[in-house]
């Protein structure tokens, strides 16, 4: 038995599949692909799959991963992406299958490509970019965050691990935030705080582009 990790992209219409539904789509794809994978025991047998870092509804991604166990040690992993893709909707594309290296608990951060837009078109993209830069210069960015113990006020500023404006003409930027089981910061927290700061309704096009372990190494 091999512990296997597949990496996949999620985009287009599949951005709007929730994590729970993604799970169902994947189970069906595995069933249909006839990959010989490990099933849970018991009455309600089902293929055993897990996801290292769930993706929020509405986000695209280039770096999702899913884990399962392949029963046959000699299985050729390089054919797995093709076999799964034949059984998946267009918006989910598996591009790599490897024996897993890291544990999901090793994940520390994630990177996002984000493009913002004022839905009412009152603020131009350029202006919005300037305001974003100013916003991030503030001494602190206090927001309410849901935690297991209820709502808590946190300062987001300390969590911005990296920020790079890529195209001020489009308010396109890259943002790296803590991610994983212990501390997970959703980029929407920051975007909502910014929307409040500029008093506008913003539309955010968000793609997760990297998942990292300690030291910024790619999760693999």
């Amino acid at each position: 038995m091999k512990n296997v990790r597949v990496f996949f992209e999620k985009h287009g219409s599949c951005k709007y599949i929730s994590h729970l539904d993604t799970n169902r789509v994947m189970l069906r794809a595995i069933g249909k692909s006839r990959l010989n994978i490990w099933y849970t025991e018991g009455f309600n047998r089902h293929a055993y799959i897990t996801f290292a870092l769930p993706l929020s509804l509405g986000f695209a991604s280039t770096c999702e991963s899913m884990d399962f166990r392949i029963l046959d040690d000699d299985e050729d992993l390089s054919s797995v992406p093709e076999r799964l893709n034949a059984c998946l909707p267009e918006g989910i594309r598996v591009y790599r299958c490897i024996e897993s290296v890291h544990k999901p608990a090793d994940i520390e951060s994630a990177e996002y490509d984000i493009t913002l837009e004022d839905t009412s078109d009152n603020i131009s993209a350029k202006e919005l970019s300037d305001k974003l830069n100013a916003f991030l210069e503030l001494p602190e960015i206090l927001v309410d965050k849901k935690t297991k113990k209820g709502m808590k006020q946190v300062d987001l500023k300390q969590y911005i691990l990296d920020f790079r404006m890529k195209d001020p003409e489009k308010t396109s930027f890259t943002l790296t935030l803590p991610a994983g089981a212990t501390l997970n910061i959703n980029p929407n927290l920051l975007i909502n705080a910014f929307a409040e700061y500029v008093s506008a309704e913003l539309y955010a096009d968000i793609t997760r582009t990297g998942v990292y372990i300690k030291g910024g190494e790619d999760f693999a």
């Binding site: 287009g12 219409s13 599949c14 539904d21 509405g58 059984c87 998946l88 909707p89």
Partner: peptide, 10 residues
């Protein structure tokens, strides 16, 4: 449920 409005199914 935005998934209702996007198609793109297998």
């Amino acid at each position: 449920k935005p998934g209702r409005y996007v198609g793109g199914e297998l």
